[in-house]
Design a protein around this nucleic acid. Structure first.
Lengths: 152, 152
DNA sequence: GTACATTTAATGTACATACATATATTTGCA
DNA sequence: TGCAAATATATGTATGTACATTAAATGTAC
């Protein structure tokens, strides 16, 4: 089996935490790579895909640009410009909010929903990727450990 | 304690593996955020910092651009242009390799080494971040689990 | 109710990433 | 030797990220 040391050609780490940190970063990058490969032929970028998925998760309810940012993993990404690109292709629509005209409500269009439906079959789920090697209980434990790390 | 569901305002996940995948991505982004904050006042980007650290790890030995790519976590990043920026600031130097004139040898300069030394005190180590919440044994177990996930 | 601060989104700029292509050099083989 | 294929790096272009600034709407103090 290929360990993290093999992956980045680094034979020594200062300690096991250093190794773990790099392992987490590398595994995240590896997930991204899997997704990008799946999206390759569909002319949609990974950030655009993620925004579409967040919008679908709203089940028809509109969400503001700020709301999108909160739900995005990469907090500093520029939701406004990603929505620009999606709107150009009519995958989402944007409308100034009536109650507070500073805000902009974003919703996924039918075309966007249809595209996601098509992509669902291509993009591997985390369950597909991990359930063979990891029991449900292992996954729970990992989740707990990661939550703890961030609450240091 | 703030769990991953709180962090991205998502109350439900389709299964524990989905939750874990997102947790890994989010934790990696959180590490990046910590590092970026530390580098903020030093006019150096995170990718540039990472390249400098790889070069220091070479202990004086030169490394080719391709060698740099292998050791970088983000495989598709463009090492050539990151080295450009570092060379402009005299933090690294670049020289066509004698044995194979297609290759370019990159080494860290004294100025680059001095900058890294200064940054070492500012950038938190993974050990600092994680050792309080995670035992050595826990960290080993996590490393093993992540290696397994990627070898699916 | 006007003045000033705050909030929300969009925009400008520099750097990075993703991916295709170009250029120079080396290798392999007829 | 001559030349196609392979290799190493650089470059071009579109998109994304990081961070500061701008513009419009709203909230608050007086």
């Amino acid at each position: 089996m290929k360990s993290i040391g093999d992956e980045i050609q680094q034979s020594e780490f200062s300690d096991v935490y250093q190794k773990l940190g790099i392992n987490i970063l590398f595994t995240a990058a590896w997930f991204g790579e899997l997704n990008r490969m799946a999206l390759k032929d569909y002319d949609i970028s990974l950030p655009q895909y993620n925004v579409l998925r967040i919008l679908r998760g709203q089940k028809g309810k509109a969400i503001t640009v700020a709301g999108l940012c909160e739900r995005m993993i990469d907090k500093s990404s520029n939701a406004s410009r990603i929505v620009d690109k999606l709107e150009t292709r009519n995958l989402v629509s944007r409308r100034v909010c009536d109650k507070d005209r500073r805000q902009v409500d974003v919703v996924i269009t039918e075309k966007g929903t249809a595209l996601l439906l098509e992509l669902d079959e291509k993009v591997p789920t985390f369950k597909t990727i991990m359930s063979k090697q990891l029991s449900n209980k292992d996954a729970e434990a990992l989740n707990f450990a990661l939550d703890q790390i961030r609450n240091h």
